[in-house]
C-alpha cells in the first residue's frame, strides 16, 4: 500500500469503506461478547437502585445526589467503554494479524482508522443510551432541572467520545495496549486535576502564562461535563459557551485523527 495515496482519502470514495470498517468493528464487538463489560456496569446501577429502594430517599437533596451519581456513572462508564473499544482496535488487529487482509482490500489506512474511530464513537453512544436507561430514567427527580441543560450535557458527552476515540487510536500506535488504557483513563478522568495542579504551581511565577499555555495542550475533559450543572438546576449554558465547547472537541478530534493517520501511514505493519 502506498502511504502517500492513503494519507487523505477523497470524500466520496472514502465514505463506503469507512462505513464498512465501522460496521465490521461493531459486529466484532458483539461477536466477542464485549457487552459483558456493559452488563457489569448495568449491574452496578441495578444494585444502586435496589439500595435506594430499600433505604429510601430522605429529602430532595438526597434525590439530587442519587441523580447526580447515576448520571456521573453513566458518563464515566460510557467514556470507559469508548476508551476500551478504541484503544484495542489497532493492537488487536496487529496481534491477530488481521490487519493485512483488511488493508489488502481497497481500504486505505486512513479509511481504516476513520472506520474504527466512527465505530468506537458509536459504541460509546450506544453505551451511553443503555446507561441512561439504567442511571437516569429511574433516578428520582425531586428538584427543578432544565431538560435543555441535560440535552447539552449529552451532546457534549458525544463530543467527548469523539475526542477519546481519536486520542485512544493515536496513542495505541505508540503505547502497549494495557498501559495505553491506564494512561488514557488517567487523562480522561483526571486531566483537569493535573492541569489545575500544574497551573496552581506556576501561579505567581514568571512561568505562569507559559504553563497556562502549555497545559492547554492537555485535553481537558471537564469542559465536556455538564452533569453537575444539570443536577444543580443550572440553566442551559449560552450558545457561545456551548459552541466553544463543541469547537474544542472538534479541534482535538481533528488533530488526534490527523496525527493518527499520519503515524499509521508511516508505520510498518
Amino acid at each position: 500500500m502506498s502511504t502517500d495515496s492513503a494519507a487523505i482519502p477523497a470524500p466520496e470514495s472514502s465514505l463506503r469503506p469507512v462505513a464498512l470498517v465501522a460496521r465490521a468493528v461493531v459486529l466484532e464487538t458483539v461477536r466477542r461478547r464485549e457487552f459483558y463489560v456493559l452488563a457489569i456496569f448495568m449491574g452496578i446501577f441495578l444494585a444502586g437502585a435496589l439500595i435506594a429502594e430499600i433505604v429510601g430517599i430522605e429529602n430532595p437533596a438526597t434525590g439530587t445526589f442519587i441523580l447526580d451519581l447515576g448520571l456521573s456513572l453513566c458518563v464515566v462508564f460510557s467514556q470507559l467503554v469508548t476508551l476500551l473499544t478504541a484503544a484495542r482496535q489497532i493492537p488487536d488487529e496487529l496481534e491477530a494479524r488481521t490487519l493485512h487482509p483488511l488493508l489488502a482490500k481497497p481500504v486505505s489506512r486512513g479509511q481504516c482508522l476513520m472506520g474504527k474511530w466512527l465505530a468506537s464513537v458509536f459504541v460509546g453512544v450506544f453505551a451511553l443510551g443503555v446507561m441512561l436507561l439504567m442511571g437516569w430514567v429511574p433516578a428520582p427527580k425531586m428538584e427543578r432541572y432544565y431538560d435543555l441543560t441535560l440535552l447539552q450535557a449529552l451532546v457534549l458527552q458525544v463530543a467527548a467520545f469523539c475526542v477519546i476515540a481519536a486520542l485512544a487510536l493515536l496513542s495505541s500506535l505508540f503505547i502497549p495496549k494495557m498501559l495505553n488504557m491506564v494512561l488514557l483513563a488517567i487523562i480522561v478522568f483526571k486531566s483537569s486535576t493535573i492541569i489545575g495542579f500544574l497551573q496552581a504551581r506556576a501561579a505567581g511565577t514568571a512561568l505562569e502564562d507559559v504553563v497556562r499555555w502549555l497545559t492547554g495542550y492537555i485535553p481537558d475533559f471537564s469542559h465536556f461535563n455538564l452533569v453537575q450543572a444539570y443536577t444543580g438546576g443550572v440553566e442551559p449554558v449560552g450558545f457561545e459557551t456551548f459552541t466553544l465547547r463543541l469547537a474544542y472537541a472538534a479541534v482535538l478530534s481533528t488533530i488526534y485523527l490527523a496525527a493518527a493517520v499520519w503515524v499509521f501511514n508511516r508505520r510498518t505493519v
Binding site: 466477542r32 461478547r33 464485549e34 463489560v37 457489569i40 456496569f41 452496578i44 476500551l84 484495542r88
Partner: peptide, 17 residues
C-alpha cells in the same frame, strides 16, 4: 469464565467497590 476485557473490568470494579 469470560473474555479478557470483561474479566479485567469485573475484577477492577469489584476491587473499587
Amino acid at each position: 469464565l469470560m473474555n479478557l476485557d470483561a474479566a479485567i473490568t469485573l475484577g477492577a470494579v469489584f476491587y473499587a467497590l
